[in-house]
Structures are given as C-alpha cells and as structure tokens.
Computed example of a mutant assay.
Amino acid sequence: MGKTADLTVVQKMTIDTLHKEGKTQNVIAKEAGCSQSSVSKHINREAKGRKRCGRKKCTSNRDNRTLERIVKQNPFQNVGEIHKDASRTITHRRMQDVGFSCHIPCVKPLLNNRQCQKRLAWAKDKKDWTAAEWSKVILEEARRGTESMLLEVQCKVSTVSDGLGCHVICWSKVNAAVYQDVLEHFVLPAADQLYGDADFIFQQDLAPARSAKATSTWFKDHGIPVLNWPANSPDLNPTENLWGIVKRKMRYARPNNAEELKQCHRLIDSMPRRIAPVIRAKGAPTKY
C-alpha cells in the first residue's frame, strides 16, 4: 500500500465538519476527495492530539517532583538559588509546568495592633485633606549613608536644589545637632524659595535625631509646625517612590530644573489616594 497523500486545509476542514455530523468514513472520503485511510488517520490524529515537537525534556518526572517539593518548602527562594544542574531557564519552565509562577515579594513593615490603630486614627484625621493642602507639606525622606566616609567631626554636605526643594547628602552619622544644622542651612532656604511668606508644614519620621527634645525646641523657636506621623508608615510617604524615579531617570544626570522632577508633583497628588486604603485596611500596610 502506497503512502497516503497529505491532505489540504480544505479537505481537513471537510473531514472535521462531516465527522462531527456523524457521517461514516467512506462518505467523508468521497465528499473530501481522498482515501478512507487518510480520513481515518486524520480523525485519529486529531482525537489523540499531535505529538509535541522540539527537544526532549532534560528533566525527569522525579526531578520535577523534587523541584516542586523544594519550592513548597521555601517559596521565597529565587530561581537562581533553586537551580543546580539545569539552567535557570529550564528551572523556570519546570516551575511553570507544575503550576508555580515567579513574583517579587512585596516588603511590608511589621505592625503591631497599637501601630495599626495609630495609623488608622491618623488616616481618618487626614482623609479630607486635598492635594492642594498636601502641597504645603515639606516631605522629608532619609536614607542611611556610609559612616566610613566620616570626615573628622564635620558633616560633608552636597545639595541639588530645584523648584521642589533640596537634596542633602550627609556622610556622617546624623544626630540631633547635625540634623538641626541641615534644617537651618538647607531646609529653611528651600522653604523660603518654595513658599515665601506662606505657611507650610514639615513632615519627618520618628528617628531619634528627629524626635529629640532639642529638635522639637528648634521647630518651636522657628515657628514651624510638624506633621504628626505614624510609625512604620513608608506607604504613606510618597517620597519613598521618589527613590525609584531617581534611580531610573537620574542615574547618569543631575536634575537641572523642576520640569525634570515633574513626577514628584504626581506623587504629592497621590496623598489623598493613599489615605483611603489605610482606613479600609484598618491601619494595616497598603499596596503603596
């Protein structure tokens, strides 16, 4: 018996349609203009599904079960930590085959019940604040530098000033005295530039240098109101997102004007949207 000729697309469609209608293979063969054996092979092939093409899997079922067990035991491992003999790509594919997907874990601060209650009370108190009101708040965000670059007793400071404020880098440990010096020589001039004679509110976290009695006295002496701030609440501070913008947009260039930092304005505008999720979550961490 000779080799059966390949079927055309039209013949395959005809066979599929007539087969669904319950026609016999002989009738289908006549209608499709092919042999009965071609009809039979096509129907059987469609029923079983075509064999997969490509390379044979380099992992066995036992390997896949082992991988599944490892992922279940420690779901926070990344692909690089899991793969051994197989490549990262193969490990990732096998993980997908057994129903796992890779995600970057969302880091949230650990809050106790008292902190959640304070966050909830704070959010309820600020829920009616508008974006215009939040624009009068000077938001402070601190990032720890390296104390190994301490130069004698002084704080080496460099600034980047624009229409949105100032960026101050301190290479020393920031105690209350250093913090007040930064406020005096950088924050006050920036506030004058931004607000002139208009009132503003200063926001700061609860680090020791900021919550020190001497620092509180400094703010009172200068007539600057300080925004009460709940502990462990990075999701309420839009400047946390600013660091991501800085890394992506300003890695190789210094900002020259307010236009280059226009995304900061959108972060300030997000403040009213940050409050509602805190209330819904009853003070627990939010997506921000």
Rank of each mutant, 00 (worst) to 15 (best):
A258I: 00
N228G: 09
A258D: 00
A214N: 09
W218L: 07
V187W: 04
Q11P: 02
W134H: 11
D192E: 15
W171P: 04
G80H: 03
I138F: 04
E260R: 03
A29Q: 08
W122M: 02
K213T: 04
T215P: 06
T146F: 13
V71K: 06
H265E: 03
Q11F: 10
R119E: 01
K118E: 13
C53A: 07
A281D: 08
M13R: 12
D181M: 09
Q193V: 00
N61H: 03
D162I: 00
P105H: 04
V10H: 14
E259R: 02
H222Q: 08
A253W: 07
T24M: 11
R45S: 05
K247E: 09
D63R: 08
Q204S: 08
K213H: 06
Q25E: 14
R94H: 15
K23W: 15
I224T: 04
A47F: 07
K41D: 08
M250H: 15
A32F: 12
K23L: 12
P208C: 03
K56P: 08
R94K: 14
S60V: 01
K136I: 00
E68D: 15
K12L: 06
I70F: 10
I15N: 12
K282M: 04
S35Y: 12
Y195R: 02
V226H: 06
D205V: 06
